[in-house]
Design a protein around this nucleic acid. Structure first.
Lengths: 330, 330
DNA sequence: TTTGTAAAGTTAAACGTTTAACTTTACAAT
DNA sequence: ATTGTAAAGTTAAACGTTTAACTTTACAAA
């Protein structure tokens, strides 16, 4: 069907090895170059990556493991990962584990059985044991796992929360609610800690009833915000710690006619497109999603080329986009 | 490094062929079965798909081409595609083309060069020529391309719009706005046609100024809804034709204090999670996303196993979820 | 015991590349 | 004309499987 090196060889009268060398960039007589180019074009020859992979023991394929394909934060990063890898000749096999612990392990081993040259993962419940003794490089995103030789790209979640809450404090707020994620998720714990740190640093007493734990989806953002709205002592500001919950939260506030920022100040997370759509535009913590993706891909490629590079942990900065959703507390 | 059939063979004293046969399900002496199982376990043998692929000329990999990795509709479908394919032993290479015509072609040929056994695509600007004469099966989602031997899974977009608009008409509405997608996109054209059909069928004069074309993103949903709100003759109902624009539209209405359904009736599209979060819950057209994904994957697998199956076009039904966002027009 | 035959196992070639080791060619220097 | 040598090209083995064709084994039937 598809033409092989052999076909090109017989068409040109040269040997297979010569064609292979030319295709792989070695020098060759000008005259033969032309002959080969012509033959390649005529036969529509394309290198067979499977055969190449067998010989070289490289599949030129990277596995990617994410919590959910509907998770916009993850897919945005993956989009950049895919681009970056493709520019280096790699394909990307994406698996999602639907936020399921068993599936997470299962899909990881699926990838490992597929001769991928490396893996980029956004893990939730993977542990040291799952990743120990692996023969290929792995880059972790969003979560660091101790005792394992995986590079890692994350943001300073604690600092992100700190800066959001500090900003609210500087605007005069004392009663600040946080809608954080699940207690057993690394990013959620860090984001809660940053919130607490800021209060402590500014000597504001911690009110446990202002700390809410959602599960990072729109519905829980909506529900918890409803709870906040109905509190006897309603906080003067809400800080919501992910993309989906930010949407749910704004919907709830809108529906109840709670005005941002006159009735309540608001800082959201991640969803920059959404933040630009609402009036007033939302103040928001944004993660450098493009940079996360590109960095992770590059770390992986480097590690593949030189497996001896030592473990690197890259902590990127988030930024706080200040818009009109935060008012000065009288 | 990784153990091969050869290693298992020498460990058991059997020939490579015997191991291969056993691994592929042929019968074998009980005694040898046990020996082989033990050796496989001890050596942690895993079949090498690259070598297997070289021999069988199958990569057991499917390419997937979608407009954008951030497109929730597409990724939801892909999530089901991935599952279904994985259950049949296939990996999924996902490429997104960022809504870019050139990239769309580029990524398609990237996939074609990768020995994928088949492709599932959600095309935007691919034409007959791009798909003609391909040697592997292709399944198209959401758009049919004439004159090309590709199976196709889509929903009845015209009928979807028709039923939404008919429902509004039956509730007494005459002035119905539609926020449709880009004029050059197949689904948008169909959805607009269904809107028009319904008006025609019920002898309601068509008001061109009620037909809006966004570009399927949140911002355009927001902007066009603002335009609608500010019309001198404001319609009594809005029908929004995709996921992202539905969010933008609701945000705009909420912000302007336009009450759903008392001030305006509303029917959205696709975003069932979002529709459940708002109060009142939104009436919404939902596409059978799971079914689309599973169907596309199954069509592809069937076509791979039997390339002679004739072209099939599967048109699935959408459904209209009726919730409190539509009121009776006095 | 011999024969027939089904089941189990083996041999070796093949898939499309790469690459080490080798040969041939081309041509400058003598 | 001879030699030396760098460049260009070739040969053949290898990567880890599968599989057609073959051999061996086991055992029931005669």
């Amino acid at each position: 069907m598809a033409a092989t090196l052999k076909d090109v060889a017989s068409k040109t009268g040269l040997s297979i090895a010569t064609i292979s060398k030319y295709v792989n960039g070695q020098t060759i007589k000008q005259e033969n170059k032309e002959k080969i180019d012509a033959a390649i074009k005529e036969l529509n020859f394309k290198i067979n990556y499977i055969a190449k992979g067998l010989k070289s023991n490289k599949s030129m394929t990277i596995g990617v493991l994410i919590p959910e394909l509907e998770n916009v934060f993850a897919t945005h990063i993956m989009s950049r990962v895919e681009d970056t890898l493709m520019n280096s000749g790699y394909s990307t096999i994406i698996c999602d584990y639907k936020n399921d612990t068993d599936l997470e392990r299962q899909k990881l081993s699926f990838l490992l059985n597929r001769q991928v040259d490396g893996i980029i993962a956004v893990p939730t419940h993977l542990s040291k044991d799952d990743l120990a003794g692996l023969e290929i490089p792995i880059v972790l995103i969003d979560r660091i796992i101790d005792g394992v030789n995986c590079d890692c790209v994350l943001v300073d979640n604690k600092d992100a929360s700190f800066s959001a809450v500090e900003y609210l404090i500087n605007k005069g707020h004392r009663d600040i609610a946080i809608i954080s994620g699940p207690k057993d998720v690394y990013t959620a714990r860090e984001r809660t800690l940053g919130y607490i740190d800021a209060l402590v640093q500014y000597s504001i007493p911690l009110n446990e009833s202002y700390i809410f734990h959602g599960n990072y989806d729109t519905q829980s953002g909506y529900n918890l915000t409803m709870d906040i709205i109905n509190m006897q002592k309603r906080p003067s500001a809400i800080y919501v710690t992910n993309n989906e919950m930010t949407i749910g939260s704004v919907i709830a506030l809108n529906e109840c006619g709670v005005d941002i920022p006159n009735d309540i100040s608001f800082i959201g997370f991640d969803n920059i497109d959404f933040a630009k759509v609402t009036k007033p535009n939302l103040s928001i913590i944004v993660q450098p999603r493009d940079e996360i993706g590109v960095t992770a891909a590059n770390l992986l490629i480097e590690k593949i080329h030189d497996p001896d590079t030592e473990k690197r942990v890259i902590k990127l900065k988030t930024s706080l986009i200040k818009q009109a959703s935060v008012s000065i507390r009288k």
